[in-house]
């Protein structure tokens, strides 16, 4: 590796280099994060957030390995352990991962939600729960049917809810630093520009799905006027939500009376 001649620093030198590597890693992760969000601005905000999170983790893993190597610790064993653990985890949890993965994609791409009536294979019922592994249907006979989420990726799914085609559901993850009230207000203002494509009786609906100390998972539901508008509305709504998220992630300014508005 080519480094400037800093011999007088002696033994501290590797630690300095490792520090520099970590700083560069941090800067690179931020840049790539922004780049991905910008490139994916018309994708589902949920997908864009996952994409940028994945890239960040990858960059940090590489950065940390290089930094560790720089201070003289062998990374061969570390890499081997991480690799084997990963393979073991994949083999052990193959079905669970399939279901969790299917849940992730069905959340994003399959048009049904809790409360809808759906038919999957020979099963039909009202969706009452969607968890990481299965989707629970309540049948007309008051029976619970648990459908592994991977079934939704490999089977024809029919949403029999009346006028289900009208609904466009967009999953959104909002980080805890963002004021949720402000987010809702801004999203509504922005989406009002699409109202010629939306059913005027149903303004945008923002509902909570899950919450943890770091993020709030929400679903934005829009109701389109024409079936043919689904794609264009989805794309435009995704873009607008991403812009609002980006805007609100910038540092906060005070209100006119000098006091910040309540945070989430």
């Amino acid at each position: 590796m080519i480094w400037p001649n800093l011999t007088p620093l002696g033994p501290a030198l590797p630690f300095l280099y490792a520090g520099i590597i970590l700083v560069v890693t941090w800067a690179l992760a931020r840049t790539v994060n922004r780049l991905i969000r910008s490139v994916m601005s018309e994708s589902m905000p949920h997908v864009a957030a996952s994409g940028s999170r994945f890239a960040s983790v990858l960059i940090w893993v590489v950065g940390i390995v290089l930094a560790v190597q720089e201070i003289g610790v062998s990374t061969d064993i570390l890499l081997l352990v991480v690799g084997l653990a990963g393979v073991a985890a994949v083999i052990a949890c193959r079905e669970a991962l399939e279901n969790a993965g299917a849940k992730y994609f069905s959340d994003v791409y399959i048009p049904f939600k809790i409360g809808d009536a759906v038919r999957v294979g020979e099963h039909e019922g009202k969706v009452i729960e969607i968890n990481p592994m299965t989707t629970l249907l309540l049948t007309e006979k008051d029976q619970l049917v648990s459908i592994p989420n991977r079934m939704f990726m490999g089977q024809v799914v029919v949403n029999t809810t009346p006028q289900a085609w009208k609904e466009v559901a967009i999953p959104i993850s909002v980080t805890s630093g963002i004021n949720l009230a402000e987010f809702e207000s801004e999203v509504r203002k922005s989406l009002s520009k699409l109202r010629s494509r939306l059913d005027p009786r149903f303004p945008p609906l923002l509902s909570g799905r899950a919450r943890n100390p770091l993020t709030s998972d929400l679903t934005l539901t829009l109701f389109i006027r024409q079936p043919g508008d689904r794609d264009i509305v989805t794309t435009e709504a995704n873009r607008r939500v991403s812009l609002v998220l980006e805007k609100l992630q910038r540092p906060k300014r005070s209100t006119r009376n000098g006091r910040a508005e309540p945070a989430t």
Partner: peptide, 19 residues
């Protein structure tokens, strides 16, 4: 229900719900 004013109405209710 599509006006900017309604966005502020929603703001107030959401801020209340969050509190």
């Amino acid at each position: 229900l599509w006006t900017a004013d309604f966005s502020e109405f929603a703001y107030y209710n959401r801020a209340t719900a969050e509190l």
